[in-house]
């Protein structure tokens, strides 16, 4: 209960702090939207008569906006400039602050990006079935958790190297290719599609977008939950090792 109220406090504080930089948030929206938008145009050029392509990609845009993570900037910078030490002194888990800022930024991006999604959907005559959208909500929530865990895990390498941006950049390249943004998973060559379905990236963008656009849905979220468990354990282990190193070096 205390954790929850601390988190709410942190989110509110961060929402206010970011409100002064709304134009910067807008550029982040553009950054988030651009890759799925390119995918939308390319695949619409390949299948001009298939409305499910546009529906899928509009959903991808929305999922991307709602799940963007920037721990390589927010958290890693605090490691680099040493201000992480202040947070280690506070009687609350450090990750709570990271999550609070993450959710605040996502909230802003979703709010500012919603008009773009709406305009795209209307311009391309895309409609969604509301049942599918409702069904997709748990999937989107789990996707948000997965992306956070993945980005945070990679950002923790800031304890060992000052090149955290290439590391996270590499992670987003994988997510772009295997997560359903470069191409819907079903359109990957056969063997690759099988691999992509097993990797965690499909659960970050492609799966919830497919559910929202009304494709097959067997009701099981086990695949996403499994990866959440794996990434949580990994992040916790890396965090413990990183903190040991950070406090030993004493910066």
């Amino acid at each position: 209960m205390r954790t929850l109220s601390l988190l709410t406090f942190r989110i509110r504080q961060q929402v206010l702090e970011w409100s002064g930089a709304w134009w910067f948030l807008l550029t982040l929206v553009v950054q988030a939207v651009i890759a799925p938008l390119i995918g939308l145009f390319i695949w619409s050029a390949v299948y001009p008569d298939d409305p499910s392509i546009t529906r899928y990609y509009v959903a991808i845009i929305l999922v991307t906006l709602m799940t963007e993570s920037f721990e390589q900037h927010t958290f890693s910078n605090r490691v680099y400039d040493g201000t992480l030490s202040h947070e280690l002194l506070r009687p609350q888990p450090v990750v709570l602050g990271v999550i609070g800022e993450n959710l605040a930024i996502r909230g802003w991006l979703t709010l500012l990006g919603a008009p773009i999604v709406l305009v795209t959907a209307i311009a391309l005559h895309t409609t969604f079935a509301w049942q599918s959208v409702l069904l997709a909500i748990p999937g989107i929530a789990l996707a948000a958790v997965l992306i956070f865990l993945f980005t945070f895990l990679l950002s923790l390498t800031a304890f060992w190297t000052d090149r955290v941006h290439p590391v996270v950049g590499f992670g987003s390249q994988l997510a772009f290719l295997f997560g359903g943004t470069a191409a819907p998973i079903g359109l990957l060559p056969d063997g690759w599609a099988r691999i992509a379905e097993a990797l965690p990236f499909y659960g970050m963008h492609g799966l919830p977008a497919e559910i929202a656009s009304g494709k097959q849905y067997d009701g099981s979220l086990g695949y996403q939950l499994g990866w959440v468990a794996v990434l949580t354990i990994a992040a916790a282990a890396v965090w413990r090792a990183g903190i040991r190193r950070y406090t030993a070096v004493g910066s």
Binding site: W23, F24, L26, T27, L28, V30, Q31, I34, A35, I38
Partner: peptide
Amino acid sequence: LQLDVFYHSAWQL
């Protein structure tokens, strides 16, 4: 107004 992120994104096109 720092539009670097916007510029780099648009550049992808």
